[in-house]
C-alpha cells in the first residue's frame, strides 16, 4: 500500500476582520500519496490558496487555523511551534507562488536568494551555497547559470523568474512542493515549459506535489488526484480519471460543462446558474444548493458531510447518501456517455 505523505483532515481556517470572522476554509480534507501530484481546483474565493498557506502556516497575521489536522508523514503540524515550522518550511515542504514577477525580492541577487535556504537548512557556507545555487539554476534549465546567479530579478523574464522560484523551492530537496497557481501569470507556451519542468523534476527527485489551480486543463495534464473546492470546502476528492470521466458532485459536473474547449467543437456551454455565495453569508444547507439543478429541501436545510461513495471516492452531496429521499431521481451518467473524448455531460432527469 502506498503511504500518504500528507493528510489533511477537516481543516478550518478563519480570518478575523473588522467586519467579523471570515471562514475562508471550512472543511477541507484530502490525502496526498507519496510521489504523486494532488490538484486542488476551485474558482476564486473557494479557499484553495488559503488551504495551501495553512499547510505551511504562512497565513496573514489576522488568519488562524481553528480546527483540523495537517499530518505530514503522520505528524500533525498544527500545534508545532513557530521554530519547528520554520525548520519545515523551505526544507521538507516548500512552496512556489503565482506571481513570479513580485515573488522575488528585487534588491537581492538570484544567487543570494537561493543561497538563503541552503545556509539556513543545510548549514552550507556562503561559498558552497552559491555553488549549489548555480547547480540548481542548471537543474531548472536556466542558460549560463554562472552569470545568472549574479543577476537581479528585474533582469529576468517572467518564465525565468518562475524557474528561479522553482530552483529556490527545490534547494533543500523537499518532500512536498506546493505550487500555488505557478503558471497562471505566464503565457501558454511558457506555461508548457514550466509544467514540463515541474513534472520532470518530480520524476527525478521523487517529490510529491500539491498543485493549486483554477485551470482544469492543467489539472488533467499534471495531477494524479484532485480535490475540488467550492466555497471553502472540498466537495469532491478522487483520482484524476474519476473526476473527469465520472464526476459525482453537481458542481464538478457543472464546472466541466461550462468549460470552453480548444480541442473540440461544442454547441453551447452549460453554465452554472447564479453566483458564488458571499463568504459572510453562506447558505445554511449545502453551499452549492442555490446553484444546483438537483437541489431539494434537504439540500437547502442541511450541509452534507464529505463521505466515501461506493468506489471509495469522497463526495459532499446528499444524492450519494442514504438520506436522499428519491423524490427527484438524479442521474449522473458515467463513462458510457464519453464518446470520442468529448467532455463529460451530466443529465439531471426527473
Amino acid at each position: 500500500m502506498e503511504t500518504n505523505v500528507l493528510e489533511v483532515h477537516n481543516l478550518r481556517t478563519s480570518f478575523y476582520t473588522d467586519d467579523g470572522e471570515v471562514k475562508a476554509v471550512d472543511g477541507v480534507s484530502f490525502t496526498l500519496p507519496k510521489g504523486k501530484t494532488l490538484g486542488i481546483v476551485g474558482e476564486s474565493g473557494s479557499g484553495k490558496s488559503i488551504t495551501a498557506l495553512s499547510i505551511l502556516q504562512l497565513l496573514a497575521s489576522n488568519g488562524k487555523i481553528i480546527d483540523g489536522e495537517i499530518r505530514f508523514k503522520g505528524e500533525n503540524l498544527i500545534g508545532y511551534s513557530d521554530r519547528k515550522m520554520r525548520d519545515i518550511r523551505g526544507n521538507a515542504i516548500s512552496m512556489i507562488f503565482q506571481e513570479p514577477m513580485t515573488s522575488l525580492n528585487p534588491v537581492f541577487t538570484i544567487g543570494q536568494q537561493i543561497s538563503e535556504s541552503l545556509i539556513k537548512h543545510q548549514k552550507l557556507s556562503k561559498r558552497d551555497a552559491l555553488l549549489k545555487s548555480v547547480d540548481l539554476l542548471k537543474l531548472v534549465g536556466i542558460p549560463s547559470p554562472e552569470a545568472r546567479v549574479r543577476n537581479y530579478p528585474y533582469e529576468l523574464s517572467g518564465g525565468m523568474r518562475q524557474r528561479v522560484m522553482i530552483a529556490m523551492a527545490l534547494a533543500c530537496d523537499p518532500e512536498i512542493l506546493i505550487a500555488d497557481e505557478p503558471t497562471t501569470a505566464l503565457d501558454v507556451t511558457i506555461q508548457a515549459q514550466i509544467l514540463q519542468l515541474i513534472k520532470e523534476l518530480q520524476h527525478r527527485l521523487g517529490m510529491s506535489v500539491v498543485f493549486i489551480t483554477h485551470d482544469l486543463g492543467v489539472v488533467a495534464e499534471t495531477c494524479d488526484y484532485v480535490a475540488v473546492m467550492y466555497a471553502g470546502q472540498v466537495v469532491e476528492y478522487s483520482d484524476v480519471f474519476t473526476i473527469f470521466k465520472e464526476p459525482k458532485h453537481p458542481y464538478t459536473i457543472g464546472l466541466l460543462n461550462s468549460l470552453p474547449r480548444h480541442d473540440m467543437e461544442q454547441d453551447k456551454l452549460e453554465p452554472i446558474r447564479g453566483n458564488v455565495p458571499n463568504v459572510r453569508d453562506m447558505p445554511i444547507g449545502c453551499r452549492f444548493s442555490p446553484r444546483c439543478p438537483a437541489a431539494t429541501d434537504l439540500c437547502r436545510a442541511e450541509l452534507p458531510e464529505l463521505s466515501k461513495d461506493d468506489k471509495g471516492n469522497d463526495v459532499r452531496c446528499w444524492i450519494y447518501s442514504d438520506n436522499w429521499d428519491g423524490e427527484m431521481e438524479v442521474n449522473v451518467y458515467g463513462e458510457k456517455r464519453i464518446a470520442q473524448g468529448r467532455g463529460v455531460k451530466a443529465v439531471f432527469s426527473d
Binding site: 519545515i88 518550511r89 523551505g90 538563503e116 535556504s117
Partner: peptide, 15 residues
C-alpha cells in the same frame, strides 16, 4: 505585504 516577504517566510527564515 509584498509577495517576496511571503516567499522569504516560505523559505523558513526567522522573522
Amino acid at each position: 505585504d509584498q509577495d517576496y516577504i511571503r516567499t522569504a517566510r516560505a523559505k523558513g527564515l526567522s522573522e
